[in-house]
Computed example of a mutant assay.
Amino acid sequence: MISKKYNPHTTVSLAMAAAFFVFLYFFKDFPADKVIISAIVMMLVLFGIEIFGENPTFCIGRISSSFLGAFFIPLALMHMVYIRDLSDGMKLVFFIFIVVWILDTMAYAFGKVLGKHKLAKNVSSKKTLEGATAGIVFGVLAAVACRFIFMSNILTLQNAVILGLVISVTGQFSDLAESLIKRDGNVKDSGKIVPGHGGVFDRFDSYLFAAPAVYYVLKIFK
């Protein structure tokens, strides 16, 4: 996601994000101290670029936006890999995708037909309370259906309901969070790889908070 408003260090941020993702992949036990060290190193690099650069004006915006892309996004999405590595992990990954796809579709459909009350009017003018409610209801129903179809040996009915609720709430919150970033950055699409669909990042924004939330709820279940 590139914004002329913040002008982040795109190449450096992408390089650090890729390196951090690889680092997290090979340290799947989630060593908190090493993650903290990674964050500090990133900040040292970004501050160093600004300190020894030619124009320090608006440096906080560049540092903040670069760090957000380099640290938070890989850390959040890596939890999908952590989920995959759990027992029956691939089923759980498909479960998350299915629930998100259904809740997004139903939230859009009900919001378009019945939506009257804005959910977050200053962030996304098209999202409504009615659509969000429908997304939660159908997200939970989708989770329950998945449980009966191919996950009865993994989740109890109660677990499925809880996970459906968690995914539905955090997934829609993630979508709003990405809309907030795009609105503040004054950009329509988060990238050009998938033109006309909000950018490639829009295909994965629902998982930014949903993936970590599901992973730690699963840990609680065990």
Rank of each mutant, 00 (worst) to 15 (best):
V45W: 06
G69Y: 11
R203Y: 10
F67S: 05
F72Y: 12
D33W: 08
G198A: 09
A32M: 12
V200D: 02
S87R: 11
F110Q: 00
A15K: 03
E54P: 00
K34S: 09
A210M: 01
G139V: 03
V12D: 03
S3W: 05
S66C: 08
V161W: 09
K219I: 14
I102H: 00
V194L: 15
F173A: 11
Y216C: 06
I96A: 14
K91V: 11
L86H: 03
T128E: 06
V214N: 01
A211S: 06
K127Q: 09
I40V: 13
G139Q: 07
M151D: 01
D104L: 07
P74G: 09
D205A: 03
I49S: 01
R203S: 15
V137E: 09
G171L: 04
P74N: 12
C146K: 08
I181D: 03
L24Y: 09
G48L: 07
F94H: 05
R203L: 15
F95Y: 15
T128L: 10
T128W: 09
Y215N: 03
V194G: 01
K5Y: 15
R62A: 12
V137A: 11
F67M: 09
S190N: 11
F209V: 04
K118T: 10
H9V: 04
V200T: 10
M90I: 12
E50V: 07
L141Y: 05
A17V: 14
A17L: 14
F94K: 02
Y215E: 06
L163H: 04
K5G: 05
L119A: 09
V187G: 09
A39K: 01
K219Y: 11
V214A: 01
L92H: 04
K188R: 06
I193N: 08
L163M: 04
M1G: 11
L208H: 06
G185A: 13
F97A: 14
T128G: 06
G139M: 07
V93H: 05
P195E: 07
I37K: 00
A109H: 00
N153C: 01
A210H: 05
A15C: 15
S87Y: 13
I98H: 01
F67A: 12
V161Q: 02
V113R: 12
T156Y: 00
L119T: 11
R183T: 10
D205I: 06
F110Y: 04
L141E: 09
V99S: 07
Y215K: 01
G61E: 13
M151W: 01
I136V: 14
I51K: 03
F30S: 06
F97L: 15
F221R: 02
E130T: 10
V137R: 01
L163I: 12
A210L: 06
L155M: 10
K182Q: 08
V137Y: 13
V169M: 08
I60L: 15
M90L: 14
K112R: 08
S38D: 05
K118S: 13
K116R: 15
I2M: 08
S174K: 00
